[in-house]
């Protein structure tokens, strides 16, 4: 059998043309299966990250040091849940239900950002997650506002609008510690030491190593490469650290006049692979928590449904 020329399919040609004209692909449009799969994978992974990401921060809700910090943290975690919800909804336009996506997560078939497999051990970690983790996420999300799948792009625009307070509150909370007592400053520095490299890993493997990057860039699902985004994060974060007198734990970090950017050291890719493959400090805990919440809620969801059926029956009667 001869290989069919893909461009012979007029639907594919129309799809490619939309992409090259920077038009958004909408749910009812025809799209190649591989595109559908890729965008679903990216969105569900993003949604799972938001929801799993509620855990390390949630770990400090009941222990926040002041009532003000407590409500800010609660509101922020609630936003993350909301963002997960926007993203699940956007992904559902592709015909996969939220239940199916969550099931895939619990079966270990879907991933989430590996940063959330690190533990939040001290209060300083809450500030650090806001400053670094949300900071890195925003760099990525701002870029994704122009992603080619319409519902994803719109969810990103909405999320970026809300996310701006997250990083600012994190930096501000870190600043208070960095300018506080010696103990507090040490707490902040220790936290930066633990979160810096995992934050750098959030952008994924080098462009040359990234499995999905090439195709995603071609389809404009991803608009900028992992390495470009990582560099942007470093360049914006280093001065922020200097301003509050914290030291980024990278001996190779230095300003490169010629490039107008910071040079930085190599990520420990072995650790990255370990965490990604399920063996980070909290992988098991995070998944078990998510499964337990899902299971504990089953009788509630069943009750709602039973009630609704009774109500409908009463209406008919």
């Amino acid at each position: 059998m001869t290989e069919k020329n893909p461009l012979a399919d007029p639907r594919l040609a129309a799809f490619e043309e939309k992409i090259s004209n920077d038009q958004r692909i909408e749910p009812k449009d025809w799209m190649p299966d591989a595109f559908r799969k890729n965008v679903l994978r990216q969105m569900s992974q993003h949604a799972h990250s938001e929801v799993i990401g509620m855990q390390p921060e949630g770990n400090w809700i009941t222990r926040a040091p002041t009532l003000y910090r407590k409500i800010v943290l609660l509101a922020k975690i609630q936003d993350e849940g909301g963002h997960g919800l926007y993203l699940y909804s956007a992904a559902e336009t592709l015909g996969t239900s939220r239940e199916e996506m969550v099931q895939a997560l619990h079966d270990g078939k879907a991933k989430y950002a590996s940063i959330f497999n690190y533990p939040s051990l001290t209060w300083a970690d809450i500030g650090m997650i806001g400053w670094l983790v949300d900071g890195a996420a925003i760099v990525n999300q701002v870029s994704l506002q122009r992603t080619s799948y319409g519902p994803y792009s719109r969810a990103m625009i909405r999320i970026c609008k809300e996310e701006s307070f997250h990083q600012r509150q994190g930096y501000e909370a870190t600043m208070v510690l960095a300018r506080g007592s010696a103990e507090q400053k040490a707490m902040a520095q220790d936290s930066l030491n633990r979160w810096w490299w995992p934050s750098m890993m959030m952008f994924g493997p080098h462009d040359s190593e990234s499995a999905h990057s090439g195709q995603s860039m071609k389809w404009k699902l991803k608009r900028e490469s992992n390495d470009v985004l990582r560099q942007r994060f470093v360049d914006q974060t280093v001065p922020q650290a200097e301003f509050i007198g914290l030291k980024i734990p990278d001996p190779d970090l230095k300003w490169n006049e010629e490039r107008g950017s910071y040079d930085f050291g190599e990520i420990d890719w072995d650790e990255f692979m370990q965490v990604i493959s399920g063996n980070g400090p909290c992988n098991r805990q995070r998944l078990q928590h998510s499964i337990r919440a899902q299971e504990d809620g089953q009788w509630v969801r069943d009750a709602m449904h039973a009630y609704e059926l009774k109500r409908q029956a009463r209406e008919v009667a």
């Binding site: 929801v51 509620m54 855990q55 949630g58 809700i61 009941t62 009532l67 407590k70 409500i71 609660l74 509101a75 975690i77 609630q78 849940g81 909301g82 997960g84 919800l85 699940y88 939220r98 928590h289 919440a293 504990d296 809620g297 089953q298 509630v300 969801r301």
Partner: peptide
């Protein structure tokens, strides 16, 4: 606030958190 990230589904998780925020704000 202990319900946050433990709700029976995401929509209710957000709703319970709003109620929690009301009470802490009141305090």
């Amino acid at each position: 606030s202990e319900w946050c990230r433990n709700g029976p589904f995401l929509e209710e998780d957000l709703a319970l958190t709003n109620v929690s925020l009301d009470f802490i704000g009141r305090a």
